[in-house]
Amino acid sequence: MNKIRYHRRKYTQGHTPIERLERLSKELGGPSISIKRDDMLGLTAGGNKTRKLEYLVAEAIEQGADTLITCGAVQSNHCRLTLAAAVREGLHCQLVLSAPETGDYQPQASGNHLLFHLLGAEKIEVIPAEADLLAAMEELAESLRKQGRKPYLIPVGGSNEVGSLGYMACAEEIEQQAWETTTPYDYVVTATGSGGTQAGLIVGFMARQSNTKVIGINVSRDRAAQEAKVMGLLRSTAARIGLQGDIRAEAVLCDDRFVGPGYAIPTDGMIEAVRLVARTEGILLDPVYTGKGMAGLIGLIREGHFTKSDHVLFLHTGGSPALYTVPQLFLP
């Protein structure tokens, strides 16, 4: 038995619920759609990074770290949750934020950026969009080491073979819930960015010998680049847990048709999807990840990708604080 999967902190009590989206399913006239509410995971305001952080922070503590350092965009859900985990564990946290590719950095911004300050980030460093996030984190880490401190660096999105274990565990959770409700899922659809969520799900279903297929809806990058990124994480995660057997290229599917002009840049499809889910199910999506992910699912349904007898599970990865940074998209 590979013990790495048991080196874990616990930030959520029990499983996140799976809900049937009956009104949305009827509205779209396609397969039966359900939603996995990972926006209800523990830590501040929830979201998928919580699962990854359970393993990453466990490793940090095991190594004797006193400071977590991570990076992301100025409205990064991952940075918010890493900071929340640090607060929970009594650790310091420093953030490296990449300035927006379009528009100016707003130091008084709402959303996650407000929460960085409210949660008490020890340091926030904003660098140009084209600058090297990893190099900036290494500089912070070296400065701390010179002070006798012990930093632990977490990559963008918490997406490495340790963080991906969180979604291996999620796949097992989904399988258990499917068994309990006698509802096997033919597909899981998720937004895919840094890749750890999608890779972890695929590894988890493979380990369970499940037939569930995972479809990633890109929020950045073209299809080839994203599939290569996810495949790399898939292989390193599988190796980490000792999973044997060949991993075929067709195990990784990423659809890049719903990205629009680029990461975090709104699209008409995203706006429609956020409104439709709010008005049919009373569930809030976000404009960067789940909004585009749901736009992808809606697009696939309209193209006839699924049959009416299929059961599709949409993974809600959180991120709703970002809604409050773009009210103009949804106000009359």
Results as ranks from 00 to 15, higher is better:
3 K>G: 02
4 I>P: 07
6 Y>L: 14
11 Y>T: 14
21 L>R: 09
28 L>C: 03
30 G>H: 00
31 P>S: 05
35 I>G: 06
55 Y>P: 10
56 L>E: 01
61 I>C: 08
63 Q>N: 15
76 S>I: 04
93 C>V: 01
95 L>G: 02
107 P>I: 02
110 S>Q: 15
124 I>P: 00
128 P>C: 15
130 E>I: 13
137 M>E: 15
149 R>K: 11
151 P>K: 05
153 L>W: 02
156 V>P: 00
167 Y>K: 14
175 E>R: 12
177 Q>S: 04
180 E>G: 00
180 E>L: 10
182 T>V: 04
183 T>P: 00
183 T>K: 10
185 Y>F: 09
211 N>S: 13
211 N>V: 00
214 V>K: 05
216 G>V: 11
219 V>F: 11
221 R>T: 04
222 D>G: 15
223 R>K: 14
223 R>T: 02
228 A>P: 04
236 S>L: 01
244 Q>T: 09
246 D>N: 11
258 F>A: 08
259 V>F: 02
262 G>L: 11
263 Y>M: 06
263 Y>F: 15
266 P>D: 04
267 T>N: 07
268 D>R: 11
272 E>L: 06
284 L>V: 13
287 P>L: 12
288 V>G: 00
290 T>V: 03
291 G>V: 12
291 G>M: 09
292 K>G: 13
304 G>D: 09
305 H>R: 14
314 F>Q: 00
317 T>D: 07
317 T>W: 03
322 A>D: 10
